[in-house]
Amino acid sequence: MKCSVPNGVNTSAHIGWCPGCGHGIIARLVAEAAQALGIEDRIIMVEDVACGEFAQNVLQFNSIGAAHGRPIITAAGAKRVRPDAIVIAHPGDGSAYSIGMESTIHCALRNENILALVVNNSVFGMTGGQMSPTSLPNMKTTSSPHGRDVTKNGNIFDAMKVLSQLDIAYLARGSVESPAQVIKTGKMIQKALEKQMNNEGFCLVEVLSPCPTNWNLTPQEALEFMKEQEKYFQLGEFVDKGGK
């Protein structure tokens, strides 16, 4: 089987992510999907102020650096003024479901024709591993050193349960926990981009991703921990509307 790094990835760039971080795998999936669809020149990535933004070095696509929590709403604006562009917001779980929750929900309510690609590593990665809305019950983080207590800190946020109630084009959750899941996740991203090309509306693909540094685990242990993550966050497609 031939496997070559897609053209959109600049392999001579500085790759800023920690060893074993899932962000690098997910960036490659974006470039593979763009290459398969022949849309590399049309892509605008909208990055966050968080670990995902290292994709600006790696991916050779046009990009915008949004404020933290604002990639999804900024992507919606970019798409409105550049309707021919293929716009991908690239926030983390902290960005999309905490500080930027209202952007996520209202862009979905308006069925903005963009892809929100949310990298869910169950922590605020860049700032040192604080608890995020998707930290697992009892998960130890720097801001929940005794473990997340759902009676005090609230229940975990499952975007699939909430957004599946809304009138959007596509909603799916993948994972980079194994090669098989990486393949499935790549297909989800490609499908969402095709939907944007067909003007179908809001697509959100969440990808479970390891953060070995802030989980205080080796990269191997982090893959094991992802099986725990998958117990709380079901994988699959939750909304898949036909074309308009």
Partner: peptide
Amino acid sequence: RMCPDYVIE
């Protein structure tokens, strides 16, 4: 598929 640093082809 799993290499985060694009080492393997």
